[in-house]
């Protein structure tokens, strides 16, 4: 059973690309909600641009990408780089799906903090997010303010 937590973190779970298999993504959404996260789910068949836009609009702390089609090497880094272009490199990006181990190092280099393969326990994803987000919060406390300022400037335009 997933242990509860009173975390205020906001997570976007997203399905990039054309893959319609979202059993796993929807289970993760439920498990994270049960663990106390605020979770937004994009639905299937989103472009990286749509996902980045949703991450900005929803002001999330992390984006979880789920893909089973094998297009992860194209689509995951694209989401990470779009967020970086928007000055939102502090948003934690993680992923899961049918992804071979040998792709993990390159994905990490391209801004995907962690990749979970099939059979990952729900608890280990919850534990990872709590830990990684707490670490990020400490490290980037100043930066998230910059993000708010940037957003404010955008809204004013």
């Amino acid at each position: 059973m997933v242990e509860g937590t009173a975390s205020p973190y906001r997570i976007l779970i997203a399905k990039p690309g054309l893959d319609g298999h979202d059993r796993g993504a929807k289970v993760i959404v439920r498990a994270l909600r049960d663990a106390g996260f605020e979770v937004i789910y994009t639905g299937i068949r989103q472009t990286p641009e749509m996902i980045a836009r949703a991450a900005i609009q929803e002001d999330v702390d992390a984006v979880g990408l789920s893909l089973l089609s094998g297009a992860h090497m194209t689509l995951f880094p694209r989401v990470a780089s779009l967020l970086k272009e928007e000055g939102l490199g502090d948003i934690l990006v993680f992923g899961g799906g049918i992804i071979p181990d040998e792709d993990f190092p390159l994905l990490r280099k391209k801004g995907i903090d962690r990749v979970f393969g099939p059979g990952t326990s729900l608890q280990s994803i919850v534990d990872y997010l709590k830990e990684a987000l707490a670490r990020r919060k400490q490290a980037t406390d100043g930066k998230s303010k910059a993000r708010k300022i940037k957003e404010g400037a955008k809204a004013a335009k």
Binding site: G17, L18, D19, S69, G70, A71, T74, L75
Partner: peptide
């Protein structure tokens, strides 16, 4: 593959990375 399943030719931007995959 998913582009064939969703009616996209190989050169469609939304097919990038998915052509011939599944």
């Amino acid at each position: 593959d998913l582009p064939t399943q969703t009616g996209l030719d190989a050169d469609h931007p939304a097919a990038a990375g998915e052509v011939g995959r599944v």
